[in-house]
Design a protein around this nucleic acid. Structure first.
Lengths: 118, 118
DNA sequence: CAGAATCCCTGATGATACTG
DNA sequence: CAGTATCATCAGGGATTCTG
């Protein structure tokens, strides 16, 4: 039976990572500091509105930092906080599963276990 | 720069786990075989429609199995496949992060790093 | 360049009632 | 019990335009 205290409570994490672009956005940031435009291009076709929203939320959660470099044209950088970087294992686990279960380009595994793929 | 081949491709996983209830549903199944009604109560207030939809999708992906035990009243059991059970590390990583970063009931950590909590 | 402001729209989900 | 069938809903996103 579940430990309804807290140990099993992934809800907060789910809420944090919720949103169509959040995980993809974070993945990008794991590759280093990014500017707004970079993220926008990388996450294309995300809308600037959505990108801003997601970044703001992550900022509030202490997952990313926003650094403004005054001047014209504007220069803003987004970077993962230490707290944010600690999300790494989650991505690692996802990649691991993807690699072992999704047969990238070349593999033949497609034999699940209970199979019956129509 | 990112390895645009496949290694970094978490998209399929994200798609698989997408949906408001999917992760919560899977978490329940990690606690053992469940019947439709059990899941419904546990995930309350999920609607039967949504629960069915999610279960069907997971079934198609080879993540869960549906077993029908003929008779009246009906008896249907849902269980994780081996493939599904291999998603475990993802949950583990989420729980780990939640425990270390979200200060369950008693803790005081709330000091992120770049702080500046409003 | 980085957003803010608007308006719009669709798809995931909810609510409810019914059935084998 | 375990769904299916319908209809209604709404929030997350999208598209576009504008500005410091």
């Amino acid at each position: 039976m579940i430990d309804r205290n807290c140990p099993d409570a992934i809800e907060p994490v789910l809420k944090l990572l919720d949103g169509k672009w959040t995980l993809l956005l974070l993945r990008d940031l794991f590759n280093g500091i990014k500017r707004f435009g970079e993220l926008r291009r990388s996450l294309h076709p995300i809308s600037p509105k959505t990108l801003t929203e997601r970044l703001r939320l992550l900022e509030e959660q202490g997952i990313v930092t926003r650094t403004l470099y005054p001047g014209v044209p504007l220069h803003v950088e987004y970077e993962l906080t230490e707290r944010g970087k600690r999300l790494q294992p989650i991505f690692a686990a996802m990649r691991a599963w993807a690699q072992s279960e999704l047969t990238c380009p070349g593999k033949q595994a497609d034999t699940w276990d209970t199979a019956a793929a129509e």
